[in-house]
Amino acid sequence: MQSYANARVIHDADSHTMETGDWLAPYLDKDLLESLGAIYGDADTGNRILGIIDAAKERKTDPEKDAKARENIIAGYKGWAGYGAFDKDERVHALDALGFGSQLVFPTFGLGLVRRAKDEDTLYKASYALNKAQADFCSADDRLVFIAFIPLDNPARALELLETALADGAGAVLLPSNPPGKERSPGHPDYDPFWARLVEADIPFTLHIGPGTMRPPSAYMNNGRERAPDLHGGGENLRFADYMTLWYAPQMFLTHMVYDGVFQRFPDLRGAVVECGAGWVPDFLRQLDYAHKSFQRTDPYLQEMDLKPSDYIRRAMKFTPFPGEDVGIMIRDAGPDLLLFSSDYPHPEGTKDPIGKFERTMEGIDEDAKDRFYRRNYEQLMNMAPAVEAIAAE
């Protein structure tokens, strides 16, 4: 049976687990089981989610339901009901049907639970538990790339957590997009051992919607009107005004990675901004260089740079557009080397046909640029052997 990728080599830079209620519990300290052992409460929303999970679990023993869920995986069930959303064996079959060469796997609601930790010790213990759970899920297939969540609040503990994640096979790390611990720039020298270890381990960092990304100040919601539903009709996800601020935090993070010299000190450091859109990227590059030109005469730190600011970003970073954003315009504006394909599977935001949506914006874009978007930029980010070479070697 033909896969969704339809013989094109594609790597997926954004996918997720949809965690079950006790996802972290097997790996948590006993003293945290009561506060963090259950992801979903017993309110109406929590019970609805647990009901969806139970119904999805029934597929394991019901061949008819299993076959129905497999009919069209990308356009079928999403969220907790998605095929392989939390069941790692199902996820392997889902990858076969999708035809992606590999897939970065981010957590979803488990991450929100971790970020509710009220103290540093709990934060790192919960992050450890989440990473263990994610590593276990991704152990089902080499195509599933385990993304470890590493809060940078405490530089020493972040490095310790990174070492554990590397031992468990992490292929990349997820960092919050805000100033670490609300105290330091990510370019502070305290983090140099962390960046050096990523380079030594040859894995990238990622920034992703959620941890550290921004929403408008709550006062803007006081507009005399009832709050509109999110794009799924519920109450907790992204809305119009939220979308317009998604890239603020990644921009600030990357600006300081450039300004504080991190990308200069660590020229092999690599990263990606995931699920924050990418239409902003071409102008971000221009604004970095404009600011450099405007302030270089009086700023000694700018004078020390051996590249233009935009060139540090071009060397180090990749970005995932949303399905429906005009990838063709971005490629024409900023070049073919910055963008990555992503499905966001099994989140519904990824749409029922992300490839089709991207393709419709790329009329006139040559095959070389398309190949970079679908696989080669990803292979560069992950420092993978190019797929065509791997096939030829076989």
Results as ranks from 00 to 15, higher is better:
3 S>F: 12
10 I>G: 04
15 S>F: 02
20 T>I: 11
21 G>K: 02
26 P>V: 00
30 K>E: 13
30 K>D: 14
31 D>R: 14
32 L>A: 08
34 E>Y: 05
35 S>N: 12
49 I>G: 07
50 L>V: 09
50 L>P: 01
58 E>R: 08
58 E>C: 12
59 R>I: 03
59 R>K: 09
61 T>Y: 11
63 P>W: 12
63 P>H: 15
64 E>D: 15
72 N>V: 07
73 I>P: 03
78 K>Y: 10
79 G>L: 12
81 A>G: 07
82 G>W: 05
82 G>K: 13
88 K>Q: 01
89 D>V: 00
90 E>L: 06
93 H>G: 09
94 A>P: 13
96 D>C: 08
97 A>D: 15
99 G>H: 07
101 G>L: 10
101 G>F: 11
104 L>S: 04
111 L>S: 10
111 L>C: 12
119 D>N: 14
119 D>F: 04
130 L>C: 06
130 L>T: 07
133 A>L: 01
134 Q>M: 15
134 Q>P: 00
139 S>M: 03
139 S>Q: 11
146 F>G: 02
150 I>M: 10
154 N>Y: 08
154 N>C: 07
157 R>C: 00
163 E>R: 07
163 E>T: 00
165 A>T: 06
169 G>V: 07
171 G>Y: 00
172 A>R: 05
176 P>G: 01
178 N>S: 03
179 P>L: 03
180 P>W: 02
183 E>V: 08
183 E>F: 03
184 R>Y: 11
185 S>P: 09
186 P>Y: 03
188 H>L: 05
188 H>F: 08
189 P>R: 04
194 F>A: 03
194 F>Q: 01
195 W>F: 12
201 A>R: 02
217 P>C: 03
219 A>G: 07
219 A>L: 13
224 G>Q: 09
227 R>N: 06
230 D>I: 08
232 H>N: 10
233 G>V: 09
236 E>D: 08
237 N>T: 10
238 L>T: 12
240 F>E: 06
244 M>Q: 15
247 W>I: 03
247 W>P: 03
247 W>E: 06
248 Y>M: 11
253 F>Q: 04
253 F>Y: 09
254 L>W: 01
256 H>F: 13
258 V>Q: 01
259 Y>S: 06
260 D>V: 10
260 D>T: 12
264 Q>R: 08
267 P>D: 14
268 D>T: 05
268 D>I: 00
272 A>W: 03
275 E>K: 06
277 G>Y: 10
280 W>S: 14
282 P>V: 13
284 F>G: 09
285 L>E: 03
286 R>V: 10
288 L>S: 07
291 A>G: 00
293 K>Y: 04
294 S>P: 00
295 F>Y: 11
295 F>M: 04
296 Q>I: 15
296 Q>R: 14
300 P>L: 00
303 Q>F: 07
303 Q>P: 01
312 Y>G: 00
312 Y>P: 02
314 R>I: 12
317 M>C: 10
318 K>L: 07
321 P>E: 09
327 V>F: 10
329 I>M: 10
330 M>I: 12
330 M>N: 12
331 I>E: 08
337 D>H: 11
338 L>C: 13
344 D>F: 02
344 D>A: 00
347 H>F: 08
351 T>E: 15
352 K>H: 10
357 K>F: 13
357 K>T: 04
360 R>G: 01
361 T>H: 09
362 M>F: 12
364 G>W: 08
365 I>C: 06
371 D>Y: 14
376 R>F: 06
377 N>K: 11
378 Y>N: 05
382 M>H: 05
387 A>V: 09
392 A>L: 13
